[in-house]
């Protein structure tokens, strides 16, 4: 994370240029699609598209490594637990039972294995689009575009103001913790039992919270003195007007979602199992 608290990586890809609100629409459509289906063919298609988009955005892998591995580990663990705890769950979806790997207390069947594969693909389809949205959206421009799609500007501005002051608060928290540590009220091993260390940690929260409240007070004054909240609407320095491209992609997103819903209702109703 850089010091402004955002993960934004500068660039000039399609996604960088896309309006924040349009990205939000696409992201929501994408998520709904993902949750609707249980069909490996759909997920493979979405994964290919998603990875393709991610490749064009040019976000360095180092930046997204953390999110990437977190998601992979979660998916793998999730898969392993399903296989170990309910090794024949797939039967419930397909009605067939093809024993494959004996476990001793039970046997993992091919249906469950395929189900886990489908499920993992389902989770992973969310990964590229999430990374894209997080790393290519400038936070202040995002506040402006939220406002444009109908979120009241006072709420939209909260996004921006939170990003502005979270690093300050973390820094304050750290320095308070350091001074407490010298008094013997830190959170390291030498400061006592886990319970004691948790108590110490919670004690630090008091001054930090107090200073946060004080900060809110003075920020509110500063904002009021500069006319925040007096007009019915406000403009935004960052960001730009919606362009043809933005509209096209927003419409495209909604259309794809409609097609998805049609597919779900008419064609790909349930769990897809080719064998």
């Amino acid at each position: 994370m850089n010091r402004t608290g955002s993960l934004y990586v500068t660039g000039n890809s399609l996604f960088h240029r896309l309006d924040g609100a349009v990205k939000l629409v696409l992201f929501m459509a994408w998520t709904v699609m993902t949750y609707m289906f249980l069909d490996l063919r759909v997920f493979v298609l979405m994964l290919v598209v998603g990875i393709g988009l991610l490749a064009t955005a040019g976000v360095p892998f180092k930046k997204m490594a953390f999110l990437f591995w977190l998601m992979i580990i979660f998916t793998v663990l999730n898969g392993i637990f399903i296989l170990l705890i309910t090794p024949t769950f797939g039967t419930r979806l397909t009605g067939t039972d093809t024993p494959l790997i004996p476990l001793g207390y039970n046997t993992i069947n091919a249906e469950t294995l395929f189900y886990v594969l489908t499920l993992s693909a389902k989770y992973l389809t969310l990964l590229p689009i999430t990374i894209l949205c997080i790393f290519t959206t400038q936070p202040s421009a995002f506040a402006g575009s939220l406002n444009r799609i109908g979120v009241p500007y006072k709420i939209a501005y909260a996004v921006s103001i939170a990003l502005r002051y979270i690093p300050d608060l973390t820094e304050e928290f750290r320095s308070t913790l350091n001074s407490m540590q010298a008094r013997g009220m830190g959170i390291t091993k030498e400061d006592g039992s886990i319970a004691q260390r948790l108590r110490n940690l919670s004690a630090v929260v008091v001054p930090v919270l107090q200073s946060a409240l004080h900060r809110i007070d003075s920020v509110t004054n500063a904002m009021e003195l500069r006319g925040f909240g007096t007009e019915k609407r406000r403009t935004w320095y960052s960001g730009k007007e919606m362009e043809g491209l933005d509209w096209t992609l927003a419409v495209l997103g909604v259309l794809l979602l409609a097609v998805g819903i049609w597919l779900k209702v008419r064609v790909l109703k349930g769990f897809w199992y080719p064998f």
Binding site: R226, G227, F228, G229, R234, T235, W236
Partner: peptide, 10 residues
């Protein structure tokens, strides 16, 4: 910030 609050064009 003040200009934004006055809804001045970008």
């Amino acid at each position: 910030f003040v200009m934004e609050n006055k809804a001045m064009p970008r």
